[in-house]
Every structure is written in structure tokens, then in C-alpha cells.
């Protein structure tokens, strides 16, 4: 079913995936498990080929937000953007779990006009609106695909005991609903997660999990999974280390005028030795 759907999509759609996603975007914390309140954590962010290796472009952390044990009243500081790496710091002023994330949700459209010219909306760097799309669409657009597209990149850190307040799903886009706490992951143990699309189970989402330091081995050793009919998936961590997880989801249950929903979710997890 999934394959049929993909095959039926116009080739142009493949180009709607932002160029960053041809590479891998990520946010990596210096620590995920801390003993004391007021501890500092520093974050690196980049878009790269090798997992957690600064080999391509930086990613700014300016657009990232924080939800912590008492809400959204936490601020990333000491932002810097280098040639290869974005960075920022966060002080964990309360005990509990923090989610550091960037999430976007936008309308995008692709078409071919009467002269055979490809068109897209919104223009790079602009916000999309339904009115704007209506104005931009030529009268006789062909091969029109309007997507409701969401993208989220995040990671989790905990001071003291893990807490649940920061893990509540927003109900928008493709996101993770942890069954196993994301800062309580150990090698050899099974973790269970659920993926949600707009707050509902994301059934058949495709997941790739890759352990850090791909540049020091011959193979990516990626773990490929898919969510079940409840949007759940499980992973037994093969060994301790940092892991990059990317999930993608697509269906045709978008809100009009969009004709499809596309979601991308990326997270970094730290798995400790048992």
C-alpha cells in the first residue's frame, strides 16, 4: 500500500523534501542524565552526512525551544553559529525532564503551469497561507500537489528523576509519544515509543535508527522499523551510545486544500551501558 502510494506520486514531489533532509539534521546534548539541579548542558546542532560529525553545514539553535518540568519558561543561551556547527547552552534550573525542540508545520504546493514550467509555494523563506497559495496558483495548474508538511527535531535531557510534564504531545505534526522514558534507555533493554500524526497514531511510519560514529565503521548499521496499527514501535538497543532516530510519515488525510500529510521527525537518544 505504502509503495503503491509512493509510486503514484509525481516525481516533482520528491524535490519538495527540504534539501537539509538529503543530509541528516540533528541536535546533540553534552549529557542527558544529570545529578543536580542548575547543571548546564551544551548542545551542538548540524546537518551532516556522518551521524553526529560536523562534516557539512551548521544548524542554528536560535529557533529551538525548551519545555521543561514547569513549562516553557526556560531559555537557551550562549548561541553561536560556526561554519560547521551551531551551539547553545541550557541550565537545568528545576529537577526533571526537558525537551529541546524545533517544530514547523507548513502548507507547501508544487505544480506545472500551462507552459510546462514547474511552480512551488511558498517561495523559499516565506510563510505559507491559504490565501497566499490561492493567489500564487496559476488558473490551470497541472499535477498539483498540496502538502501539509511537518518537521520536528528534538532531544531530551533530565536532571534528577525523569519526569513526564515535558513529554506531552502537542497534537500537531509528526511527534513522539514515549512509552519508555527517553532518558531511561539502557543497552540490551527494549524501549517502546508511539508516533503520532496530529495527535492520532501514525500507522506505518518508517523509522531509521543509526548509532553514532558511523565514520569509524564500514557500515551504517541502520535499524529500520515501521510503526504498527497503533503507531507503536519497539527497539532493543544493541549497545550503549548516542543514537539518531528519523521517522517519516505520509498519508492522504490532510485538511483541505492540502491533499497529503507529510511528516518528518528526528531525535537524538543517549543509551547507557547496563
Amino acid at each position: 500500500m505504502k509503495k503503491l502510494l509512493l509510486a503514484a506520486l509525481p516525481l516533482a514531489l520528491l524535490a519538495t523534501i527540504p534539501s537539509a533532509e538529503a543530509h541528516r539534521a540533528w541536535l546533540v546534548p553534552s549529557s542527558t542524565v544529570l545529578a543536580t539541579e542548575d547543571s548546564w548542558v551544551t548542545f551542538d546542532a548540524a546537518v551532516s552526512n556522518e551521524i553526529f560529525h560536523f562534516d557539512y553545514r551548521p544548524m542554528s539553535i536560535e529557533n529551538f525551544q525548551v519545555i521543561g518540568p514547569t513549562g516553557s519558561n526556560y531559555t537557551l543561551v550562549n548561541h553561536a553559529l560556526g561554519e560547521l556547527r551551531g551551539q547553545a547552552d541550557l541550565q537545568l534550573s528545576d529537577a526533571g525532564t526537558y525537551r529541546i525542540y524545533t517544530a514547523s508545520h507548513a502548507l507547501t504546493a508544487r505544480w506545472v503551469d500551462a507552459d510546462g514550467q514547474r511552480g512551488m509555494y511558498p517561495p523559499r523563506g516565506q510563510q505559507a497561507t491559504v490565501a497566499g497559495l490561492q493567489a500564487a496558483l496559476p488558473a490551470n495548474a497541472q499535477e498539483l500537489t498540496i502538502s501539509e508538511s511537518s518537521r520536528r527535531i528534538e532531544t531530551f535531557v533530565t536532571a534528577g528523576a525523569p519526569s513526564l510534564q515535558a513529554l506531552t504531545p502537542s497534537g500537531v505534526g509528526l511527534e513522539l509519544h514515549p512509552i519508555t522514558h527517553p532518558n531511561d534507555l539502557f543497552a540490551g533493554e527494549m524501549a517502546e515509543f508511539q508516533l503520532l500524526i496530529d495527535g492520532e497514531p501514525a500507522v506505518g511510519a518508517e523509522i531509521v535508527i543509526i548509532r553514532a560514529h558511523t565514520r569509524f565503521r564500514d557500515n551504517q548499521e541502520e535499524i529500520e522499523l515501521a510503526t504498527d496499527d497503533q503507531g507503536h514501535f519497539t527497539i532493543t538497543w544493541p549497545q550503549a551510545g548516542l543514537y539518531w532516530l528519523n521517522a517519516s510519515y505520509r498519508d492522504d488525510r490532510a485538511k483541505a486544500p492540502a491533499t497529503q500529510r507529510v511528516g518528518s521527525y528526528t531525535a537524538t537518544f543517549e543509551v547507557l551501558p547496563f
Binding site: 542524565v33 544529570l34 545529578a35 543536580t36 534528577g160 528523576a161 531511561d184 547507557l272 547496563f274
Partner: peptide
């Protein structure tokens, strides 16, 4: 600060 490095104890009780 470093009690977390007693990582099994930290997980099971310390935290």
C-alpha cells in the same frame, strides 16, 4: 554532581 556515574544505583534509586 558525579553520583550519576554510579549509573545502576542512580537509575534504581539515587535519582
Amino acid at each position: 554532581t558525579w553520583l550519576k556515574d554510579l549509573r545502576q544505583w542512580w537509575r534504581r534509586s539515587g535519582r
